[in-house]
Design a protein around this nucleic acid. Structure first.
Ligand code: FES
Ligand code: FES
Lengths: 145, 145
DNA sequence: ATTAAATCGGATAAAAATATCCGATTTAGC
DNA sequence: GCTAAATCGGATATTTTTATCCGATTTAAT
């Protein structure tokens, strides 16, 4: 569904936002441990998240990463997915035709497009704050116990 | 969604089955042209389709590929997807947790699992014959016009 | 038997995705 | 100012996926 990089990115934002709920800034090591991801790879993805303005970074001693919770409240998961995997989940033909449209559809289009529509609607209607709250409340996890 | 290899596999079966609707056996070149896929790559995938018994092959002059239409009628698309991409579309956690279950879910599980369920149900309820008929009737295409 | 058309199968090549490394830069605290 | 802790960014390495190549085998037609 998502690329591995995108999965990591999503978990990283959720982890950082969850720490922000406690008013805490977190750092690379904590994030990598919190989502069970290689440190160096986590770092690379965090850089993209900072560039894309999803998380805030502070250099130097006591530096680290945090989020603006108001922003997380109005940030649909879809925005993050778009940055890492492009819009192809939302628009690409499931069989790889150059364009997906109902006038010249692939044989699966009619049955697939509605499901994809629901998926997109989940991604658009789910904000990063809600996902972080799932972790905060203990109802969901980001790594095996 | 699917791997490229799986997309090609699906289109190949559809193409071969569509020719079988005309009572015709088709060959590698025609298939590759019919789905706009590199000949050598198409060949490799066809071999797996033969091994998995989705298509029948005949060697030698006038050889080629064909399908058993009765088999296509009772062959859900899901069976092909499973061979090429495993069961991970149906079972894998969308965020990559080792196990997807509702007792220890990832933050997306609750919203994602129902959509995935619908997707699986489409893949299970769509048979290869129906997809081939979509091409036969001209309502759908396998490559750009 | 010979030939030509076709699939088969193993080895290999190329490209993309995933992951690591390390020196440069920034900054809080002393 | 110095030091230690942290992110930054570019280069590189590894792994997986995608794609190709080519000789071996099979077979219909002559
Ligand atoms: S044309 Fe294939 S999914 Fe729309
Ligand atoms: S636990 Fe993540 S999708 Fe089910």
């Amino acid at each position: 569904m998502f690329s591995l990089t995108c999965e990591h990115a999503i978990k990283e934002v959720i982890f950082v936002a969850r720490q922000s709920l406690d008013g805490q800034r977190t750092n690379l090591k904590e994030i990598a441990a919190g989502i069970e991801s290689p440190v160096a790879y986590t770092a690379k993805i965090l850089q993209q998240l900072v560039k894309s303005n999803f998380v805030l970074s502070t250099k130097g001693v006591n530096g680290g990463f945090e989020t603006d919770l108001n922003k997380m409240k109005s940030l649909p998961l879809m925005r993050i997915v778009e940055v890492f995997d492009g819009d192809f989940i939302a628009n690409r033909c499931v069989l790889g035709l150059k364009s997906c449209n109902s006038t010249h559809p692939c044989p699966l289009h009619e049955k697939y497009a509605p499901v994809r529509g629901r998926l997109v609607s989940v991604l658009e209607s789910t904000c990063m704050l809600d996902l972080a709250l799932g972790i905060y409340s203990g109802q969901a996890i980001l790594k095996e116990l």
